[in-house]
Design a protein around this nucleic acid. Structure first.
Lengths: 206, 206
DNA sequence: TCACATACCGACCGACCGGTCGGTATGAGA
DNA sequence: TCTCATACCGACCGGTCGGTCGGTATGTGA
């Protein structure tokens, strides 16, 4: 009867509550340290209720992560599609990231942290979803930048991973204690990546 | 009777065997996924024998990590103390790192991965030992570089973490599939950190 | 050779945890 | 109002794993 876009049923609402509780717990503790009981209690259901909606702890975790990474992929794809120089677009992507609520930022690091816990198909799914959400989006911008002569030629895969690594430094707990503003973090990451830390362009390391 | 430097007793040799086995397993699997039984079997002792030398699984892990991080601290301190420009010294430190056997390289990442598993004193110990081994050593060189005008002024703490993050990208599994040589990795990290990825020094991100 | 400490064994314990299952509550359609 | 599906409960199970403990082997000093 309502609008064409279905409103969430009670069942969907419960599942969403469970996922939210799981997300909250998984970012704070290790996968193995979070028990299904903890998740159920935090979501105000019993373990039986939890297993009514999810077939296993692994499946719950993977579902939660895939949902979130798909949201991120969409978010970052917008930054990729926006106009401007590579520098401006990477700054935009980074700003989108930095302006996410803290928990959503931290979620990104879960894959890197927990990926060893899984194996086979689940592991592949998680890795692929992560790559699709972040490094591959960054890589697109970097390849445009190289093509336009804005960035020096180089392996765009490693460059994008490097950029992502810099971003993840600046979203971490440690940086939280140092940076006051999003602008400061943003400027730091983008400036360092584009211009480097040296005062003069020297070169010839080895 | 032997030289003044004592030769390892049988007991010390067993403890070392256990630590080596633990190291090997902990780098490959998560802390929680490695059982004391696995470690004992890999070290060719029983669980009882393991608990004769270590009081708990946690203590074994922490001992192993602290030992290793202290070795690394000494190694990197040499790079800090060596002569040359900041660029040369950071390149030297990175080369020392990259030339370590694979398992020793990966060990560095364990703290970041497993630190959430512990709490209280153990957690503090691990974090401090890691900082002392790597980021603080890098920070020393960076501060010299800023003082000498070789590096642009900036927060040396964040700069050192950024450099370490770049190094860790380049020692990871992903980079293993891309880079052929240590020289290529080394050049990439140091050049990116000092000179940036842009062709021309632009600026003004925000 | 006796005494004692230290190294090590391996069966066992108890707690915990993922997952199940028989059952109840709720609500919608006939 | 009867029926049936779906949502959910909570006691329970099977297995695992960190840790223990009584015992044996080994070697060393007296």
């Amino acid at each position: 009867m309502p609008a064409t876009v279905t409103r969430p049923t009670k069942s969907e609402a419960t599942a969403a509550r469970i996922i939210a509780a799981a997300r909250h717990l998984f970012v704070a503790r290790t996968y193995a340290d979070v028990t299904t009981d903890m998740i159920a209690r935090a979501a105000d259901v019993t373990k039986g209720g939890l297993y009514h909606h999810f077939t296993s702890k692994e499946q719950l975790y993977v579902t939660m992560m895939l949902d979130d990474l798909e949201d991120k992929r969409v978010l970052f794809a917008q930054a990729v599609a926006s106009p401007g120089t590579a520098r401006e677009r990477l700054a935009g992507l980074t700003r989108d990231f930095l302006e996410l609520p803290r928990e959503e930022r931290e979620l990104t690091r879960l894959v890197r942290r927990d990926v060893n816990t899984f194996s086979g198909e689940e592991r592949e799914q998680l890795v692929r979803a992560y790559q699709r959400a972040l490094p591959e989006r960054v890589q697109e911008i970097i390849e445009d930048g190289i093509r336009d002569g804005e960035l020096a030629p180089g392996d765009s895969r490693i460059l994008s991973w490097s950029f992502v690594a810099l971003v993840e430094v600046v979203i971490g707990d440690y940086a939280d204690r140092i940076y006051g503003t999003t602008e400061a973090r943003l400027g730091h990451v983008v400036d360092l990546f584009f211009d480097g830390a040296a005062t003069q362009p020297a070169g010839g390391t080895t």
